[in-house]
Each structure stands twice: as C-alpha cells, then as structure tokens.
C-alpha cells in the first residue's frame, strides 16, 4: 500500500466511504494553535538573537580601533557603537515580551548566542574604559537599560561566563595590536594598581580556571572548549611580549606581529 497512491482512486475510496471526521480533530486544533504560537515566538527570538550577535560584533570591531585604556573613546568609535546599540535595543525590546513568565527560559538555547555576544561587547567596552571586569549584575543592568526595565530579558550566569571567555579573545587582539602599533603593552602607567592587559588576562585566566562546572549540566561542553581557546589567547599575548623583549630592539618600525588568525582558531575549537 502506498499512502499517496493514485489520486483518483484515493479520492473515490474516500467518497465511497461514509467516513466520519476524526473525533480528535477539535483537540488537535487547540494543539495546532499552541504549537504555532510557540514556533512563531521561537522564530522571532532566533532572528533577534542573530541581529544582536551581528550588532555586538560590529561594536567590538569599532572598539578594537581604540588604542589606550582608561581614556574617553575617539568620537568616531563612540558614534559607531551608538548606532549598533540602538539596533540591539530595538531587537531586545521586540522579543522581551516573548521571554516572560513561563517562557523566561524556554528559548534560552535560541537567545544565548545573542546574549553572549552582547556580554562580550559590553564587558570589553567596560574594560577599555575602566580596566575592570564588569560584574554580572552590572551586565544585567546594562541589558535592563536597553529593554526599558519593564519586561526583563534575563542574562544567566552561563551567558555571562561564556561571554567573558569570548572577551578574553578581544583582550588578546587589543593587546597585540596595541603592542604592534605603539610598541607597548597597554595599561601600566594609567591603570588603577598599575596593571597591564597581560596581568589582567592572567588574572582572568586564574579566575576562570577555578570555576567548577558540574557534570551533567548542559553548558559543560561549551565551557570546556572556550576554556582552551582562552588559554591560547593568554599565551599568545605572553608570546608576543616575549618576542618584543627578545627581539624588540631589532624590530623595524611599523612591523606587525602575525596574529595567526585568533578568530579562526576560536572557530575551530567548537
């Protein structure tokens, strides 16, 4: 028997039978509208999450043009990032209603990429301005500001931690580019406590390595792979500094160390 069969025969058979409608159709109609609602919400969140990710990446890209710590940003950078924050605000506001009450964690899997990238952007920005790691609570507050504080989008501990891991990649990029262009590791003279990007990266590494993630949680896998990437990032800056100390004097002006595509390596690790 084939279900598709010959169309006419199937139709004839259908007409010939005084077949009653399935008694279950009414309950399935309810299910249909429930599932449709769910799928629509899911789609909206996936789209918003993608846009938030893209806008956050653009913010990070602009921020990478900054060369000093603890200074106000160049006007162009501030202007560029503002535009992207507007996009992020718009997207978060468009879905905050879908992430309330019973649905607050229902679409976590869909929203987490956007949340993580957003954390990466705001913590990197915070670092450049203050040379400090933003707290989870502060990050949530930044997000609340965007959503107007009414219907809150929750930034989970996982979103925050995974975002911080990605941020270490940005710190590496920032450190190496700055070293290449100015010949100096950023930080030191101006920063509170006289710490450099490298000592900050090491401190962050120590803290991240101490986080104890339990077996059986859903985020163990992401956590472990990002841990590896983070270690590589710290070591790249250490390597760059080593190179500068050993060969620094011989370095021709304007020479840029090979970044070895830090981003690409990160992608491979997944």
């Amino acid at each position: 028997m084939t279900l598709t069969g010959n169309k006419r025969t199937a139709e004839e058979a259908f007409m010939a039978q005084p077949k009653t409608m399935s008694p279950f159709l009414p309950i399935f109609e309810t299910f249909r509208s429930e599932l449709d609602e769910h799928h629509d919400r899911r789609e909206r969140i996936i789209k918003a999450s993608r846009d938030i990710t893209a806008a956050s990446k653009k913010i990070i890209f602009s921020l990478q043009r900054v060369r000093t710590l603890n200074d106000p940003f160049p006007a162009q950078v501030a202007k560029d990032t503002k535009k992207h924050y507007d996009t992020i605000r718009d997207r978060y506001s468009s879905i905050s209603r879908d992430l309330q009450g019973i649905n607050s964690f229902r679409y976590q899997f869909q929203i987490t990429p956007g949340n993580q990238e957003f954390v990466e952007a705001i913590t990197f920005q915070h670092y450049l301005s203050h040379q400090m790691l933003m707290t989870h609570e502060e990050a949530q507050k930044e997000l609340d500001k965007l959503t107007g504080g009414g219907e809150r989008v929750i930034l989970t501990a996982e979103d925050f931690l995974l975002g911080i891991f990605d941020m270490t990649g940005e710190l590496m990029r920032f450190a190496i580019t700055t070293m290449a262009t100015t010949g100096q590791l950023p930080g030191a003279e101006k920063g509170p406590g006289h710490h450099t990007v490298l000592s900050d990266l090491r401190e962050l590494r120590t803290q991240l390595e101490q986080v104890n993630v339990h077996e059986g949680g859903r985020f163990k896998k992401d956590f472990s792979s990002k841990m590896e990437v983070m270690r590589t990032c710290v070591e790249k800056v250490e390597g760059a500094l080593y190179g500068q100390v050993v060969r620094g004097a011989e370095r021709p002006k304007g020479w840029v160390p090979d970044l070895n595509g830090g981003r690409r390596e990160e992608a491979e690790a997944y």
């Binding site: 400090m132 790691l133 707290t135 509170p192 406590g193 710490h195 450099t196 000592s199 900050d200 401190e203």
Partner: peptide
C-alpha cells in the same frame, strides 16, 4: 611587570 592587580573583583566569580 605589575603584580598586584585589581582587574577582577573576586566577588564576581564567587
């Protein structure tokens, strides 16, 4: 190199 660093408030990770 600087040793004493205050970049990370340990409370964050706690």
């Amino acid at each position: 190199m600087a040793t004493a660093s205050q970049m990370v408030d340990p409370v964050i990770f706690a």
